[in-house]
Simulated assay, not measured.
Amino acid sequence: MEDAPRNKRRRTDTEAQSEPEPAEIPLTRSTEYWFDDGNIILQVEFTQFRLVKSILSMHSSVFRDMFSLPLPADEPTVENCVVVVLRGDTVQDWALFLGVMFPKSHSTELPDVELLVAMLRLSKKYDFALFREGCVRRLKQEFPSTLQEFDVVSGGWTFINVDAGRNEDSFFSLISVAREIDLSSVLPALYYTILGNMGSKRMPKVGAIPYISTTDRLACLRGYPTVLQLQATTTLTWLDVKSTPRHIPSQNCIHPRRCAAAVEKIYLGVSSPYLPVTWPLSKWNSDWDDEMCSHCETKAKEIYEAGRETCWEQLPAVFGLLNWTELKALDFE
């Protein structure tokens, strides 16, 4: 027999009155961006920034339009400055953004990922056009939409500063902000680079890719075997010993036996069911040059480079995306 349900005792009025109210978080003033000659206060979360209207209006059409509107007579003020509450923003993003708008010194260093993400997010939301253009250009240079541009940056981070050991977090942050600001053309190169930096000896599990949406997570996971399949039918077809006729040895081969043995040796060195030694967009491995005669080397390179072009054109489809032309047309610019 089940126990009868216990009756809940109702709280008395005295008990209800004695319970403490939730503590309110006090507002704080920014120590760095509270200008004495400021005439507008931006409140982000529980932090207030006292800034200058004319500076904000010069860079942002959103603020320019906002400040052109007449203010209600009962608008709250602090030290005779109107307070504008910016909902949905973070103090960290605004502190980073204002550090660029009001620099304390001239810097030629590359921006780190946190700064770039903050700049992209706020410059899109408030139409800081000049800041947005520079950040978008930098992100597109790092993750381009042409193979020629990709070859420039494929050796590592070139236009963004990333601390050693923070590759994965950086990739995921950039994917999230690219989705947020509708910058679709950078996604294929981003996904592909993530796969090449996984560092796993087997296809990673879904849980191994944190911080991004399920859509982006699945795109990476589904793209992994597809990339390997694409590689077999593009850049590495010259290694196919079962093709008729065989690509290598070539028709003009000087040393057929040596070149045939070289193909088998290279094939065994690059083939792997889980982690490829070379990726389909990798540049030609110069170590292969010494394995074959000059005629076979030339033929193999032609097939390899043509395969890279084909692979690049098909890269968006690998991750379930539209083609390059359509992706670029979707960019918010």
Rank of each mutant, 00 (worst) to 15 (best):
S272P: 10
T298V: 14
A261R: 06
S184V: 07
V62W: 12
G88H: 07
E302K: 11
G156A: 03
G269W: 10
V52D: 06
G165Q: 07
N161L: 14
P245W: 02
T14G: 00
A189M: 05
P70F: 00
S176G: 10
C135R: 08
E326S: 11
C81R: 08
N39A: 00
E32I: 12
W324M: 00
F97Y: 05
A219E: 09
P5G: 02
I209E: 13
L268C: 05
L130N: 10
Q231R: 02
S68L: 01
E142Q: 15
L218F: 12
E15P: 07
V186C: 00
S282H: 08
N7K: 15
P249A: 05
A317T: 04
F171D: 04
P280G: 01
T158G: 13
S185Y: 09
H255V: 15
S185W: 08
E21P: 09
L218N: 12
A129G: 05
Y224K: 02
G207F: 13
C311E: 06
L27E: 11
D163V: 00
S185F: 11
P280Y: 00
H247I: 11
T146Y: 01
L190V: 01
E24S: 12
L51I: 08
D89Y: 03
P316L: 06
F150Y: 14
D182G: 11
A129Q: 14
I254L: 13
D74L: 07
C293Q: 02
I254A: 10
T235A: 07
S286V: 13
A178I: 04
M203A: 08
S105N: 13
E45K: 10
E168V: 06
T310I: 12
R10M: 09
T214I: 14
N252H: 15
A232I: 00
F128S: 02
L122M: 08
H295R: 11
R64V: 00
M292H: 02
L322D: 15
V62C: 06
F128V: 04
I40C: 05
I175S: 05
I40G: 03
A23Q: 12
G269N: 11
C311K: 06
W288Q: 12
G165R: 02
W157S: 06
I194W: 10
T108G: 03
A73I: 09
V100T: 05
C253Q: 05
T235K: 03
W312A: 07
N80I: 01
D37N: 06
D37T: 03
F131W: 05
Y267G: 05
A118D: 05
L96E: 04
V91I: 13
W324E: 02
F131K: 11
V277C: 06
V136R: 01
E333M: 14
L218M: 13
A23Y: 14
P103N: 06
S250P: 03
E79N: 02
I41T: 13
H247P: 02
A219Y: 00
L174D: 02
S30C: 15
R138S: 07
A261T: 08
A232G: 04
T193V: 01
T193G: 06
M198S: 15
G156N: 07
Y304P: 01
I254T: 10
C259E: 07
E309M: 09
S294H: 09
S105G: 09
T158S: 15
C135V: 07
H247Y: 11
S173Q: 15
H255L: 15
N80K: 12
P256S: 14
S68Y: 00
T14R: 08
